[in-house]
Simulated scan of single mutants.
Amino acid sequence: MSSDVEGGDLLGSLLASLLADFDHWFTRGQTLLEQCPDGVLSTGDRLELAERLADGKRSIAATRSLLQASPEPVAVSMKAMAPWHQLVMEVWALSARVSRASS
């Protein structure tokens, strides 16, 4: 097997794992919003975050489709992933706030 093929396989595997992680945390965020007490986030803030999580999930699905459709290994830029990372950090913060409110 050539190093190009091995590199492409490794890139594909890493991207698949990374996209699965993003998808997991976006789904977790949606679940947290369903359980979120009113004192943690206002209705407007919950709706806004829910829309951004839904957008994130759509972006992940679109990225997966593009990666699968490409005959060559494809990378995803850090600029494209930065908003997803930010959203994951918001989910982590929400998780902590919901946990504190529940205890």
Rank of each mutant, 00 (worst) to 15 (best):
G39W: 03
P83G: 08
D45C: 00
S103G: 14
R64I: 02
P37Y: 05
V40N: 10
L14Q: 15
G8I: 13
D45L: 01
S13I: 01
L53I: 05
G39N: 15
L11I: 11
A75V: 07
W84E: 06
R46V: 00
A80M: 00
R58C: 06
E51K: 08
Q30D: 05
P73F: 03
V40P: 04
A62T: 04
G7K: 15
A61Y: 03
H85L: 10
D23T: 00
F22L: 03
A16K: 08
L14P: 07
Q86Y: 10
V88S: 08
Q30L: 15
A93K: 12
W25H: 14
H24F: 12
A50F: 00
L41N: 03
D55Q: 13
F26Y: 14
P83R: 00
E51P: 02
M81P: 06
W25Q: 10
R100G: 07
P71A: 05
A61H: 12
P71H: 02
V74Q: 15
S3H: 09
M1H: 04
G12K: 11
R58S: 03
A82K: 15
E51N: 08
W84R: 00
T43P: 05
G7I: 04
I60E: 02
T63C: 07
P83W: 04
D55S: 13
D9W: 09
L67I: 11
G44P: 04
V88A: 11
L14I: 12
A93D: 14
D23W: 04
E6Y: 05
D45G: 04
D23M: 11
L66M: 04
H85R: 01
V88L: 11
R97A: 13
R28C: 08
L94M: 07
K57E: 01
E90F: 06
G29V: 03
D45A: 05
R100Y: 12
K79G: 07
Q35S: 14
D38W: 00
L94D: 01
L14A: 13
E51A: 09
S2W: 11
E48M: 00
A75D: 12
S103Q: 13
L11P: 01
H85Y: 06
Q68K: 08
L14G: 11
A50I: 02
E51T: 08
W84Y: 04
L67H: 09
L11H: 13
W84G: 00
A82P: 07
Q86I: 03
G29H: 11
